[in-house]
Design a binder for these strands. Sequence first.
DNA 1: CCCTGATTCGC
DNA 2: GCGAATCAGG
Length: 197
Amino acid sequence: MEWTEEIIAQLKALWAEGLSTAEIGRRLSITKNAVVGKAHRLGLPPRPSPIRRNAKPKTTEKTEAASTPATAQTAIPSQPAKQAEATPAVAAEKPQAPTSARVTTPVAPAAPTAEEKPVKKEKPAASSKSKPKASLRSISDPEPQKRRGPSCCWPIGDPGTPGFHFCGATPIPGKPYCEEHAQIAYVRLRDRRDNVA
DNA sequence: CCCTGATTCGC
DNA sequence: GCGAATCAGG
C-alpha cells in the first residue's frame, strides 16, 4: 500500500467525517484494518469506539495515576472546531441497521457545514461513466446550476484544505448522492471487500 | 451472528 | 511503516 498524500488526505477527510473504518476502507479500496492502523499511526483522533482495551500487561502499573492536578492534557489540543455543528454522519440514522434490514449502510457523510468553494482544482474521483440524466429533473426547474437545490454531497478532498469540495452532481431523488456515488455509498454490508480476505 | 474500532505483532 | 490477526464491546 502506497500511502500518498492524497490517500492520506482522503483518509483524514473521511475519518473526520465520522465514517466507520470499514466504510472508509471501502471507499479507499483498502481494508478497515489498514484504515485503523494508519489512522492510529497518524495520530488521528479516535472516534467512538465500542470497546476499550484495558488489559495492559504493565509490570508496574499505577505509578502516579491517582493525582492528576491540571496536567490532564487529553490529546488533540489543536482542533479549531472547523466543522462546528458538523452533522455526524451516522447521527442522521442508525449507524447499524437492525438485523432485519442490513441491506445498506446509511452512511451519511459530508457535513454540509460549509458551502462549496469555487475551487478550480478538481480531481476526477470517479470514472466518467456518469450519465447526464438531465431529463429527470423537474420541468419547472430545468437549470440545476442556477438553483441551489440538492447536490451530491460526496466529499472530495480534505475538508479544510483548498481543493476540497463536494461532488455537487444532481443527486438521486431521495438520496443525498448522485447516482454514481450512491452506488458506492450504499454498499451491501454482507459482501463487501473486507471480511477475512 | 452481525457490526464496530483498537491493539498487537510479524513482516 | 504497513496491515492481517486478534481482541473486545454493542
